[in-house]
């Protein structure tokens, strides 16, 4: 897969949300109560929070599916309020939680061609993008199958691949790992790493803390329609008071590290690998902390 193709205004941030409010048309439900969020190009951002905290509403502002009732949302230098979802689709890809909501074509291959064709990608390039995606997601065996004839985890991959072929500069995942088996989750994990290498901005809404701990560089915590924390995953997951206040649970590796190695001067582990490295080092009599990424 190659890097993203959508036009990005020079000097503009990937996402600039300023004092965004959103009230549903009935007028009774305030879904966002004044949110400020700034995301640079190439950042991998996780958004966590309880159901109803405003996570999905916030991400729907990014591609113009919802327009803020007040405040501004500027994506790649483009104010979403003056643009349709179709126009924003070249900038922002949105992977919905349920793949059944988007699959309709006669074959997996045709499904992957749909998005790029809508945004005017030349036919030759569509073929190349589809071939790339089929290889990366391991869909060669089902490329000619009807999307509804493949298993749910594979269908999920088809749904993600159908957005990836559009090669937007910003990609939003809504609960990408819900109901997925280990194989599919690993592919999603690998995809996020690949997107990071390519400089794609990724926003991932998820309750899957181990997934976020493994791949994101920054975690935004939402509660009651507001952002209440915005920090590195290590800082967020180690903040017991924050986790308790938001009814969230840090990854098990972090919780174990906080109870065992951290009181002894060890590092805050985010993943089982980091925790295992630290335990191995200690068992081998080395007091040195394991190598950690900056996250």
């Amino acid at each position: 897969m190659t890097s993203t193709d959508s036009t990005v205004e020079r000097g503009a941030r990937a996402i600039d949300v300023s004092d965004a409010h959103y009230v549903y048309p009935t007028g009774h439900v305030v879904a966002l109560g004044g949110v400020d969020l700034h995301v640079e190009h190439g950042e991998i951002l996780g958004i966590i929070g309880q159901n109803g905290s405003g996570k999905t509403t916030l991400t729907k502002l990014f591609n113009g599916l919802l327009k803020p009732t007040s405040g501004t949302v500027v994506v790649n230098g483009v104010d979403t309020s003056g643009h349709t979802v179709q126009q924003m689709a070249a900038h922002v890809g949105y992977v919905f939680q349920n793949p059944n909501h988007q699959l309709f074509a006669r074959s997996v291959e045709a499904e992957l061609e749909f998005g790029p064709r809508n945004i005017g990608v030349p036919e030759e390039e569509i073929k190349e993008r589809v071939a790339d995606a089929i290889e990366f997601f391991g869909l060669a065996d089902v490329a000619e199958e009807h999307p509804y004839r493949v298993s749910f985890p594979i269908r999920k991959l088809v749904g993600i691949a159908s957005i990836v072929t559009m090669r937007p500069s910003i990609l939003i995942f809504d609960e990408p790992s819900t109901g997925q088996d280990h194989h599919t989750t690993k592919i999603i994990n690998d995809l996020m790493r690949r997107l990071r290498e390519q400089g794609t901005t990724v926003v991932c809404v998820s309750h899957d803390m181990p997934l976020l701990a493994d791949v994101v560089e920054r975690v935004v915590v939402m509660k009651d329609t507001m952002i209440i924390a915005d920090a590195s995953p290590r800082e967020v997951f180690a903040d017991k008071a924050l986790m308790a206040r938001t009814n969230l649970q840090a990854p098990q590796s972090t919780e174990i590290a906080l109870k065992t190695v951290v009181p002894r001067g060890g590092p805050i582990a985010l993943t089982p690998h980091e925790l295992a490295d630290d335990i191995s080092a200690r068992l081998a009599g080395k007091a040195t902390a394991p190598q950690q990424t900056v996250r």
Partner: peptide
Amino acid sequence: GIIMSAQKSRGMKGSGFAAVLPSFVP
């Protein structure tokens, strides 16, 4: 509503004959 949102996010035109299949199959 969700399906229309999902298809619009893929650049589909919100109305017209071209929107029938992507919207109604799901």
